[in-house]
Design a binder for these strands. Structure first.
Lengths: 189, 189
DNA sequence: TACTGCATGTAAGATGTTACATGATTAC
DNA sequence: GTAATCATGTAACATCTTACATGCAGTA
């Protein structure tokens, strides 16, 4: 029941159409919460019916008109309430871990290519995050100047991005470990 | 479409009933793939109908009879095929990350307690993993003796466990970073 | 007597995925 | 002309979650 809330956060950061939200869920917020455009349109309708968001028809030239959604006061309250609720344990799905354990019943070395492929994807994602960090948060971490209030949104987005970076680095290192293990084991049973 | 395969792996490691599988999905394999007993019973039925698993009625004394499932040759083939398929990108859901970004539109400091709670849970999970590692894989990493074939299943389970350990350590460190950030930001807008 | 563990299920509803559908503009 | 981008949706199906349901044995 949190796609609604992810959408609220995204619309508070910047109002936009269903299409634009779908694009954001392919990057940025999508690194921590995925959704397809079909889901988004369905949920936007419900949120509008519930009064969490307002719509504004935006006529455009050279491209189809769009509906720009923004968060209503009511939606903001709903987000606040959600923020104060404790999170319940998330359901985990690490398909690669299941495959690694399954490899014991097959030829373990057959997984090597797949693990390498994943490692490459994680390296790419890390590069992507680091490029984003350089672009959006600069290379130097300037110490906060006295009297200058740090921008909470920016700081928090950066903190989340640092989490993504730490995750990718951890995965790359772990997959090195897995590759070592797979190489040590001979051909399967 | 991978709960089937997680069940195949678990049943290959050790045959068992639906109830026992449900318990395993609360520990061990459950650290990488979650499932409730309702899901498990439903999928076991389908797998049996598809001939992936065999059932054996086991009468018991002092407790209800159970159905012990084990993987058939056909199921083993299905697992092998799945192992050779490339994994497609998994859908991510990090509710805490969404909340952290959302905190910019509320009082960031209100999240501190929740973040601390998560950090405690990750510390507990780390302790749990480390205890399991000591118990199941011993404190010393004995160098492989010549001629002694390492047990693939054991080695791979250990590799997956090391992944869990690395993940928890990364999360604990990142949440320290997040706590620093939340403290630096004053009360919300 | 009440609770916990073992053991198996059904049913309803929410959510997520995949495929289909339309139509204009812009770039190659 | 062909493909990609912008923009919005519907429909069917699969999966997941939550609640309900049963019944016996052992323990506090």
């Amino acid at each position: 029941m949190a796609l609604e809330h992810a959408i609220l956060v995204s619309l508070l950061e910047k109002p936009g159409s269903g299409y634009e939200l779908a694009r954001r869920f392919e990057r940025s917020i999508g690194y921590f919460w995925t959704a397809t455009h079909q889901q988004i349109y369905r949920v936007l309708k419900r949120m509008e019916a519930d009064g969490w968001i307002d719509v504004r028809e935006v006529p455009q030239q050279g491209r189809p008109d769009k509906k720009e959604y923004s968060v209503s006061g009511y939606g903001r309250t709903a987000l606040g309430e959600w923020l104060h609720e404790p999170i319940q344990p998330e359901s985990v799905r690490h398909e690669l871990a299941v495959k690694i354990r399954g490899a014991a019943f097959d030829d373990p070395r057959a997984l090597i290519g797949e693990v390498r492929r994943h490692q490459r994807m994680h390296r790419d994602q890390l590069e992507h995050y680091l490029a984003g960090e350089r672009r959006d948060f600069g290379a130097v971490d300037a110490p906060p100047c006295d009297g200058v209030r740090p921008d909470a949104g920016r700081e928090l987005q950066h903190a989340v991005l640092r989490g993504g970076i730490a995750y990718e680095r951890m995965m790359i290192a772990w997959l090195d470990d897995v590759l070592d293990t797979l190489h040590r084991l001979g051909p399967g049973r």
